[in-house]
Design a protein around this nucleic acid. Sequence first.
DNA 1: ATAATTGCAAACATTTTGCGAACGC
DNA 2: GCGTTCGCAAAATGTTTGCAATTAT
Lengths: 144, 144
Amino acid sequence: MTKDLEEKLAELCKEKGMRLTGPRRTILRVLSASPDHPDAEELHRRVMAVEPGINIATVYRTMNTLAEHGLIERHSFADGRARYEAGGSEHHDHFVNVETDEVVEFRCDEIEILQQKIAREHGFEIVGHRLEIYVRPLSGKAGI
Amino acid sequence: MTKDLEEKLAELCKEKGMRLTGPRRTILRVLSASPDHPDAEELHRRVMAVEPGINIATVYRTMNTLAEHGLIERHSFADGRARYEAGGSEHHDHFVNVETDEVVEFRCDEIEILQQKIAREHGFEIVGHRLEIYVRPLSGKAGI
DNA sequence: ATAATTGCAAACATTTTGCGAACGC
DNA sequence: GCGTTCGCAAAATGTTTGCAATTAT
């Protein structure tokens, strides 16, 4: 599944006319192997572990290019910096466990439908959306 | 009846032990008169129009303090910078018009209820949430 | 060949911080 | 008077960009 994703992204790059350079290939590989939502610095760290010498500016530029072509998603959570996620997976939203900072994906079609409805009622067409639900485990002891 | 929002905020400040300095008063005034969600720079611009000489660092510090004490809300939309909103109003979510950067508030109880439901299904208790729907005007002229 | 992409450093944008002076309580 | 807050300038982040060299097609 993971291996496929890298190839799929590589193919999409070619389709879009993007050149498959060494650094870009490495970035695609790292991205494909990242099930989470790393920011540029973390991504760069992982890329450097695979192939040192790649500049963080290249990471930024590549992420921007990939996002422009719709190959990845660029989130910006509350912390301010941009976080990236390899596209290809289905749309989903996020639970953020405030006690562990863990992110859990979920999907709720009914909510999506309601969004469409209320947007239309306001005279809008949806371009995209972001839903984060900050949570803590149900039964567990209260945090701090 | 409606005690001025500015007065309400001022009182809350005192309650929380925050000093009501000149600059802070001005910032509360501007904030109270801002129905939108200005960022620090815009807020500073408005503050300067009322009383020149207030530094933008003071705006940042004041917004942080107010947010820590729960008197205002600090949003961070996709554009990266922080935007502030005088609290006190009911909970709501946001449409962000991607063509104008304008923010429109909305509220949808059905969505809130679905959130509760799906969170519970995942074994979570909701602490808070954030929903932004990025939109463009429906019918008329296409953007770009 | 030639246009896209890279590394590097410098520029940029936003937000925070150290400090001594000024101020509210 | 004492602790908070201020203005200022400098630092800290996070991200983008100009340019000459390199590389994929």
